[in-house]
Design a protein around this nucleic acid. Structure first.
Lengths: 178, 178
DNA sequence: GTCTATACGGGGATAGAC
DNA sequence: GTCTATCCCCGTATAGAC
């Protein structure tokens, strides 16, 4: 991975997440990455290829978190880690997340229909198991509800980054589950 | 409002919500609305004007629901009506909602930063009052959490319309609040 | 109100030199 | 690996006839 190639990825990630995929011309990416436009196509074939590369990178960055939670033996800890995930990811990989989430709504990229929430499935499984173990009455439904809540939370974080009181909300949420 | 103008609006709403704003050329709108491309610009000045018209229409369609809930005197009923709103809106105004929500992620349309969730504020206010009256410990935080949950729910509905078990989830959610 | 024809610019992508 | 120059299409928008 050359420095220029990396620069392209980084710039594209920023611009795609800020402006959207369709609204970001390759010329702008090239300009802000201090790179010739042709180089983008040398490295990534076409604009779609550039996006694909970004999504793969995002997946890789996400893996450790998923793995850690899936393997967490303590049920309450597992739930709390899942609740913490939105803020954690947002702090560390904000642009990646904005991109992933906004992609859900840019239907051109339907090929990733399996993607956007597919990586969440292991977490859902772990969550259901935890709620069962803690003897909740409707583990599946409750898992769904919590999932929605966290989805709403991360959406809010992305839409309004300076949002205050997030940690209070997360704390209250944790207290509800164990 | 002539028939052709209405046809343009309807077609644009469908295509914008299915494909996104940037990914939908005016030529396609014209073709599928069985209208000349020039007519779109006669009526709406430019593509942005067309979008603005759609957003305004969406607002108008939403008003009755907001008003009804804001004026609901019974606290538990108010909460339940708010919980019902996502499914209700989704059934009646699916395309409008897909458009509104996807707009949040198509940053080109930032001028509506006040819009996307601004119309939810009255509901949040009503929700906080209701939770206070029902003597919940942290009305504001709880209102936030419920708001996130409903946001996640409507997102899920839009992303996966055939989703089963929605009503069970809504029922469980209602039982939690009164 | 509506259509046809057309202008104009910008977008993605390629060729070829270094 | 990288840049410059260039192509071509398609998207938005306008002009003018009916």
């Amino acid at each position: 991975m050359t420095e220029k190639k990396e620069q392209i990825l980084q710039t594209a990630l920023r611009l795609f997440s800020e402006q959207g995929y369709d609204a970001t011309p390759t010329s702008q990416i090239a300009r802000e990455a201090h790179v010739s436009e042709g180089l983008i196509f040398r490295h990534f074939t076409n604009k779609d290829g550039l996006m694909d590369a970004l999504l793969e990178l995002g997946q890789e960055h996400l893996q450790p978190f998923i793995l850690d939670i899936s393997q967490e033996a303590n049920h309450v800890m597992a739930i709390h880690k899942i609740i913490d995930l939105p803020i954690l990811l947002f702090q560390q990989e904000r642009a990646f997340w904005t991109l992933q989430i906004s992609l859900k709504w840019q239907r051109r990229y339907r090929k990733n229909d399996a993607g956007p929430q597919a990586y969440m499935l292991p977490l859902m499984q772990r969550l259901i198991v935890a709620l069962q173990a803690l003897e909740w009455e409707n583990p599946e439904l409750e898992a769904n509800i919590l999932y929605f809540t966290l989805d709403g939370l991360i959406n809010q974080l992305i839409a309004q980054p300076a949002m205050g009181g997030v940690h209070t909300i997360v704390a209250l949420l944790k207290s509800k589950y164990g």
